[in-house]
Design a protein around this nucleic acid. Structure first.
Length: 601
RNA sequence: GGCCUCGUAGUACAAUGGAUAGUAUACGAGUUUCCGAAGCUCCAGAUACAGGUUCGAUUCCUGUCGAGGCUACCA
């Protein structure tokens, strides 16, 4: 029976093909997959999958009942071992898929830990994420960025792409000069070592000091009659920062030395945080390198006439023809602006990897920036321009509103991770199920549960959407959470510790699959398509939501049916296979979100 | 002002144009001599408003109201 052997094909496309063939044979008309929908049948109706007939009625000039019955009869008669029953309600043809199909699927895949992963496509995608400024520590917004970037990279790998995880350190610019000036002025030679601080937090404090000093100077100047706007620019400390940027680009040795020293402190701090998150990069870029290529491309663009120079020597691009505005690409003092380096980086990435796609995981407040970037790259005739894809995600807000530095409401990345792990430890101790664990094992488990909860809480939301982070809800371990999914994995593992499936047993189909058994296999069947969907939509939430559905169904299944004391040996073998495959798919799905699945918790 | 995004139960999130709009929390009520109760079962509760397209609209279009972002020689 051919349909039973359709290894790589999802059941919806199998049904789609079967329907197309049937329509061809019955009515001598050709349709494509786009012409009608296959949905999972709603639980209140009998059947597994549903063909929505409405769109076919007009071209075929048939009533829903006539078409539904003709199609249902044809499918069940020509492929009886695949379609074992049908019913037609209104314009819906509900098909029941034979237990033998589900059993075969289960038996073929239950041990396969790589189930759902595609073979290599020979295409490369560069994913840029994290991309922090090196003047302050990482916060909750960065965490959404890093979780997303890392997860989408893993999902794309699972979908058969070669992925390069890239990070650009925004290590130069006026913001960096601000913390440098402040340290010169107020630091008195202090270092992270001398103060016992994590380097990124140490430097971040000077950035804050700059802001305070700047504000005070503005107040003095406005008291003397200057306008607010002018005072911001004329404040001595701001002048000093601007001068430092010019000196930096000129390569003034003492400025460069200070810059290197302070950045190294920040990197040391970031490394600790990345390691804890479990994030990694294949390639680091530094804005301090890429801006030079950017400036070179600005020069070329001037010659090509893509850019033009204003009287004050600043360089611009006119995008009014594309519905946007004019955009500056180089300042009048000759220094690079933010977008300058991005032009350089786009070229550098392309030359290194000849990517098919270059994804930028960057917040949606920069939607305009990336529109401009892509247009500029197009106008410069760069081959890199086509593959540019801005994976734009929404802001993370607190229940009280947007995080604001000056109000001190920014949630620090290190702090929130500490908190999550602490609460995970408390909860685990209360339950007292792992008293025999060693200190190391406990430590690892608390990390797995605490960080898992955080990643799950953030990744469960569609990236495009703004999300509200409620600290109290994030550390809940009930309901739609990582702990729930991890618990299900531990539960399946516990059963499998008692007994493994007998691999020599050949499954019998004389006792029908029970509803929860079949629900689980149906979900497991969907996993490869789920990976594909998550990759195509660049959306880890698809995987996270799926893993929760699977875990939820599994918990009901385990509560409802005995596995080890099943009614018959055959049932036991079916259920053991379901346990093993569910455990594998949960572990695999969570792994794509950067979450570990413990054997015990 | 211009451009873009978003309005779904008290709250937080789902739903390639398809059947009675799912799930979790918080709230009620049950559930452990039985493979893990971080579980399971039951009870309630929502598509901002007004039009339009369609056999069918949370989804697509228009308008109103509301929220956010961008519109920097900041990044």
């Amino acid at each position: 029976m051919q349909s039973l052997k359709c290894g790589g094909m999802s059941i919806t496309s199998t049904i789609q093909t079967a329907v197309i063939t049937a329509l061809e044979q019955l009515y001598n008309q050709s349709f494509s997959a786009k012409d009608f929908q296959i949905n999972q049948t709603k639980p209140e109706f009998e059947g597994d999958y549903t063909v929505v007939l409405f769109t076919l009625l007009k071209p075929l000039r048939l009533s829903p009942d006539v078409l539904g019955n003709a199609l249902g009869n044809h499918l069940t008669q020509t492929q009886p071992s695949f379609f074992c029953g049908f019913n037609v309600i209104k314009g819906f043809l509900n098909l029941t898929v034979a237990d033998e199909y589900w059993g075969t699927l289960l038996n073929n895949n239950y041990q396969n830990k790589g189930y759902g992963r595609k073979s290599n496509r020979g295409k490369t995608i560069v994913v840029e994420y994290a991309s922090p400024n090196t003047n302050k520590p990482l916060h909750l917004g960065h965490l959404r960025n890093i979780f997303l970037g890392w997860s989408i990279s893993e999902i794309l790998k699972a979908d058969g792409y070669d992925v390069v995880k890239a990070c650009i350190a925004n290590d130069r610019g006026i913001h960096i000069c601000k913390s440098m000036v402040a340290w010169q002025k107020f630091g008195h030679g202090a270092t992270p070592e001398s103060t016992g601080m994590k380097g990124d937090h140490f430097v971040g404090d000077y950035y804050v000091l700059f802001g305070k000093a700047h504000k005070e100077e503005i107040q003095e100047l406005t008291a003397g009659g200057m306008s607010e706007e002018e005072a911001e620019k004329e404040a001595p400390i701001m002048k000093a920062a601007q001068q430092m940027l010019v000196d930096w680009e000129a390569g003034k040795p003492e400025v460069i030395a200070l810059w290197k020293k302070m950045n190294s402190w920040v990197y040391a701090g970031f490394d600790v945080t990345y390691k804890r998150i479990g994030s990694d990069f294949d390639k680091m870029y530094y804005e301090s390198d890429t801006y030079i290529l950017g400036k070179k491309l600005v020069e070329e663009g001037l010659q090509k006439g893509v850019f033009y120079k204003k009287d004050d020597n600043s360089v611009w691009v006119d995008l009014t023809g594309d519905g946007l505005d004019e955009k500056i690409v180089q300042r009048k003092d000759g220094t690079a602006v933010y977008i300058t380096q991005d032009i350089g980086l786009a070229v550098e990435k392309y030359e290194a990897y000849h990517y098919n796609q270059s994804i930028y995981v960057v917040g949606d407040e920069q939607n305009y920036h990336f529109k401009v970037l892509q247009l500029i790259c197009q106008k410069l005739g760069l081959p890199s321009s086509d593959g540019i894809y801005h994976l734009s995600y929404g802001m993370v807000e607190l229940p009280s509103g947007r995080m604001k530095t000056r109000e001190g409401t920014v949630v620090d990345a290190d702090d929130i991770m500490d908190e999550m792990i602490k609460v995970a430890a408390q909860k685990t101790e209360e339950l007292g199920k792992v008293k025999d664990f060693t200190a190391n094992e406990l430590d690892k488990l608390y990390n797995t549960i605490g960080l898992g909860a955080l990643k799950f809480f953030i990744l469960r939301v569609d990236p495009k959407k703004r999300m509200i982070f409620n600290p109290e809800e994030s550390i809940d371990f009930h309901g739609f959470t990582a702990s729930f999914v991890q618990f299900s994995h531990a539960r399946a593992s516990a059963i499998l510790r008692n007994e493994q499936p007998n691999h020599h047993w050949s499954l019998q189909y004389n006792e029908p699959l029970l509803s929860l058994e079949k629900d689980l296999i149906i979900l497991l069947e969907q996993y490869p398509a789920i990976i594909q969907q998550a990759a195509a939509e660049h959306n880890p939430a698809v995987i996270v939501n799926f893993s929760y559905d699977l875990a939820k169904t599994f918990n009901s299944f385990v509560t409802e049916h005995r596995v080890l004391k099943a009614e018959t040996e055959n049932k036991k073998q079916v259920r053991l296979r379901i346990c093993e495959m569910t455990a594998n798919v949960i572990a695999s799905g969570l792994a794509l979100a950067g979450i570990e699945a413990p054997e015990r918790m």
